[in-house]
């Protein structure tokens, strides 16, 4: 099948083709899934190098799972979110205390703020990441899946193996903690302009 036609196939169909030795499916899945997996790992770890290692490991596990993948039983993305979370939790437990304190976030440089809406947005993203790094693991995972990845609560509950009510509780507590952590930064990061 040509690349263009294969490109539109859903993840599980591509995975079946991958297991049959289709090189085009391997390339499409790599280009489609690596950015998602990498971004999710980064949000859970706050470290780019480690996030890349986790992304590679998670996808290697997916390739190995391909021959026995049962289409329709689980979404590939749901499976990957779960594997990434487990790998990230393992790494954080091994290297406890490696997160960047919120005070270490680079401050926007004086005199450049007016010219740098892009920089301000970047600073917000960095500030949020640093605050996320300080949340308990489960709260961080729930907040990232809900508010950055944009998943619905039932899917998050499936990924985290908890009830929907537990997801709501985790996201609620996580957001309260984030608000508290970012309270002192909202004005300087331009949050006051958004109200």
């Amino acid at each position: 099948m040509p690349f263009d036609a294969t490109e539109d196939l859903p993840d599980d169909a591509l995975l079946a083709r991958f297991a049959d030795g289709d090189a085009v499916a391997a390339r499409i899945l790599t280009l489609r899934l690596t950015p998602r997996v990498m971004a999710h790992a980064y949000r859970l770890l706050g470290n780019r190098t480690e996030a890349e290692d986790v992304a590679q490991e998670a996808l290697l596990r997916l390739w190995r799972q391909a021959p026995v993948w049962r289409a329709g039983e689980a979404k590939v993305s749901t499976w990957l979110y779960r594997v990434v979370a487990n790998l990230c939790i393992d790494r954080r437990r091994r290297a406890r205390g490696g997160s960047v304190p919120i005070d270490a976030i680079p401050e926007p440089e004086d005199g450049q703020a007016s010219a740098a809406e892009q920089m301000q947005d970047r600073a917000r993203a960095d500030a949020l990441q640093s605050a996320l790094d300080q949340l308990p693991e489960r709260q961080r995972q729930a907040v990232v899946l809900r508010h950055i990845e944009g998943l619905a609560n039932p899917e998050i509950a499936d990924i985290m193996d908890v009830t929907v009510e537990a997801v709501e509780s985790l996201t609620s507590r996580g957001k309260r903690a984030l608000s508290a952590l970012l309270a002192g930064r909202q004005e300087e990061l331009g949050y006051a302009d958004e109200r």
């Binding site: 949000r43 949020l128 990441q129 508010h147 950055i148 984030l178 608000s179 990061l189 958004e194």
Partner: peptide, 11 residues
């Protein structure tokens, strides 16, 4: 909750 701009920036 005042976090919308931060989540938008992260995305």
């Amino acid at each position: 909750d005042g976090l919308g701009a931060f989540f938008d920036a992260a995305r």
